[in-house]
Design a protein around this nucleic acid. Structure first.
Lengths: 186, 186
DNA sequence: TCGAATCCTGTCCGATCGGTCAGAGCTGAC
DNA sequence: GTCAGCTCTGACCGATCGGACAGGATTCGA
């Protein structure tokens, strides 16, 4: 096996990923030590580095699915135009944010740590296209600010612990985002 | 002078605060070491601890003005009702977020570090009242989610580097928030 | 001129960080 | 039985962290 390669899946490995995600989401990446993770998992710190080449590799693997989901949304959007693109962008992003709530929390807390990271190099461009789709290509102040607002509103709300059932939350997020975009379906 | 008391103002002291705020905003609190701050300021690490009892004391002093501003907004809101309260809450929060853009960035990045901090103990309750004022006391899913969305939208947009002049940004934020709240003034 | 207070720093400290490594324990093929 | 290989760990490492402290430099009132 090539040195530095990720070890195959196992129960412990999965447990490590899950515990690490929870800890990263609540205390932040920098605020979580390998010791902390090992303690929650119930294994030794060395075991973490048996399954993952580094602490950063754990983070990268945790965020990969969300990144892939974002990529798929981007691809889906590229074939759409106008109102269809707007609706797809909004619902797609809301779905994504809800599916990866803990990941969103980590992302927002550790933007400085993650910025410039090679694994997430394409993300800014993708998010840019996503925002452009939401405001239908508008590049004026109104469109620009509105796009940022929608991204922020959905992300923060998903990352928070709003005491609302998931299905309600999803519907309200879509409605609210469309309202923000001036496209409310009343 | 009482041990542990903050030293009086001075040019260096102010420079420390400003540099620390910038570093905290870009790299996060945990991602910034006293060494980093000292290097930017151009003084020794020991000097930082001459003017401030600890790294955390620097953070606390940086966030105090924003906390006071939030308290003032809360007081102003307590005397208002209905539409007036909604408008005052929205414009007040937008003004606050714009006035303390870097502080907002720090707050959002280091919520885990700051949560439970005595100096910011009243903040959650105040924000709760602020959100209640925005949605006019509504406690249903719609109102709850919408309130979170407005807070998130304004905060994230202010914390980001949106290439829009401040005055335009402020106006668009207020408009966008009112739209999100279903109160768009068209 | 001379303390005394203020400002600032070099140096040191214990704790904790991410990460390495040799090897113990177990398991299955032969 | 025994050997190979996978899993997992205790012990250890250098770096860096926030912080403590004694003292040099400067200023200033008496």
């Amino acid at each position: 096996m090539v040195k530095g390669m990720a070890r195959p899946a196992s129960a412990l490995r999965g447990h490590i990923l899950d515990s690490a995600l929870s800890l990263f989401a609540t205390r932040g990446y920098k605020g979580t030590s390998l010791h902390d993770i090992a303690q929650v998992v119930g294994c030794s710190k060395a075991s973490l580095l048996y399954y993952f080449v580094s602490k950063e590799a754990i983070l990268a693997e945790l965020l990969t699915p969300a990144g892939e989901g974002l990529g798929e949304l981007d691809a889906r959007l590229s074939g759409l135009e106008g109102d269809q693109a707007v609706e797809a962008a909004v619902t797609g992003f809301v779905d994504l944010a809800m599916r990866f709530r803990r990941e969103v929390k980590v992302l927002f807390q550790d933007i400085p740590v993650l910025a410039g990271h090679p694994a997430l190099g394409a993300v800014p461009a993708v998010v840019g296209r996503l925002m452009a789709a939401m405001v239908d290509g508008s590049t004026e102040s109104r469109g620009l600010v509105t796009a940022y607002m929608v991204i922020g509103a959905v992300s923060v709300t998903c990352a928070s612990d709003v005491p609302v059932p998931d299905e309600d939350l999803r519907a309200e997020l879509v409605d609210g985002a469309l309202r923000t975009l001036g496209r409310d379906p009343r």
